[in-house]
């Protein structure tokens, strides 16, 4: 099992601290969403893990070793940092081949990853003719080349069409289920909550949260139920009697703040009120995330199955 360990990592560019005393661990067997607004330090952290940038202080290791200590590192970590990085004048196959050759990865893997990412028909085309979505797929293909236990993908869904987004979600899930460490950065909360098991949230280079997605949702999203009924008068009376606040929406739907669908359903059933529509709403997840990152809200330690303790900010 290979995890990524970041300890007291700081990277300063001139006066700005891109990463500021970051300590966290990215664990195998799950998809970790690496969240934060643009400039939060996500990409810098990934470059530091790969040894592309030198840390001002602190360490970043993969499986307990610095990245550069791996003899054939593409077999240890697959990374997608920038989908534009493949030279436009090369064909997709040449781009993958030169990477494979350097790490003594057999040519057959090049064809396999081209197949897996749906690029096989375009393998002989020059990369400059590729759409952004195809470049993302090529970057993901390069990350998969060495069949690595650790994957680090910087905004992999960027530029993918809806079909591509479904594809990448399934891929990430499969990779994590195979026991790999999957780290995926994004600046969009809702998108990330759709596929991640765990969240690490950064803002201004600092750790704000390190917890399972479910805990984040429980903590930050405000539960609310949307209900439509054939007998609003009786239902409203019953819900008020049960201690709920009920508001009438413009379209004849009612919202019940702070409640869950099962509670509202139980009340309606007890009263024998016909329910035409009943659903949980989690409208405030994105806002909670924005408030967390923009306000620099400190996040107190949340119960987490991982040994990683969210760090004091």
């Amino acid at each position: 099992m290979t995890s990524i360990d970041v300890k007291d990592l700081t990277k300063r560019y001139g006066a700005t601290r891109a990463v500021d005393g970051l300590t966290c661990r990215f664990e195998p067997g799950r998809v970790t969403g690496f969240l934060g607004p643009n400039g939060a330090g996500k990409s810098t952290t990934m470059r530091l893990v790969l040894g592309l940038d030198r840390p001002t202080s602190g360490t970043a290791t993969v499986g307990g070793r610095p990245y550069a200590a791996y003899g054939e590192p593409l077999r240890a970590v697959g990374a997608l940092l920038d989908a534009q990085a493949a030279h436009g004048s090369r064909t997709a196959r040449d781009h993958l081949r030169l990477l494979a050759v350097s790490n003594r990865i057999p040519d057959r893997r090049v064809d396999e990853v081209l197949q897996d990412t749906g690029l096989a028909p375009a393998a002989g085309r020059r990369v400059k003719t590729f759409s952004l979505g195809m470049r993302q797929r090529l970057g993901i293909a390069a990350a998969l080349l060495g069949d690595p236990p650790v994957l680090m993908l910087d905004e992999p869904a960027n530029g993918l069409d809806p079909e591509g987004i479904v594809w990448i979600r399934r891929l990430l899930r499969r990779l994590a289920d195979e026991g790999r460490t999957v780290l995926v950065s994004s600046h969009l909360m809702n998108e990330t909550a759709a596929f991640a098991d765990h969240l690490v949230v950064l803002a201004r280079g600092r750790l704000l949260a390190d917890l399972p997605v479910e805990d984040f949702i429980d903590r930050y999203s405000h539960p609310r139920v949307r209900v439509r009924t054939g007998d609003p008068v009786r239902l409203r009376a019953a819900l008020r009697a049960a201690g709920h606040t009920v508001e009438e929406g413009a379209d004849g739907r009612w919202t019940v703040e702070g409640a869950r669908a099962e509670e509202v359903g139980a009340v309606a059933a007890r009263e024998g009120v016909p329910v035409l529509e009943l659903a949980d709403e989690r409208a405030s997840l994105e806002q909670a995330y924005l408030a967390l990152t923009a306000g620099g809200t400190e996040f107190a330690a949340a119960p987490s199955p991982s040994p990683t303790a969210p760090q004091e900010v």
Binding site: L50, G51, Y70, P73
Partner: peptide, 8 residues
């Protein structure tokens, strides 16, 4: 970046 990821 890609080159140095392959050959650090």
């Amino acid at each position: 970046r890609v080159s140095l990821s392959a050959v650090p």
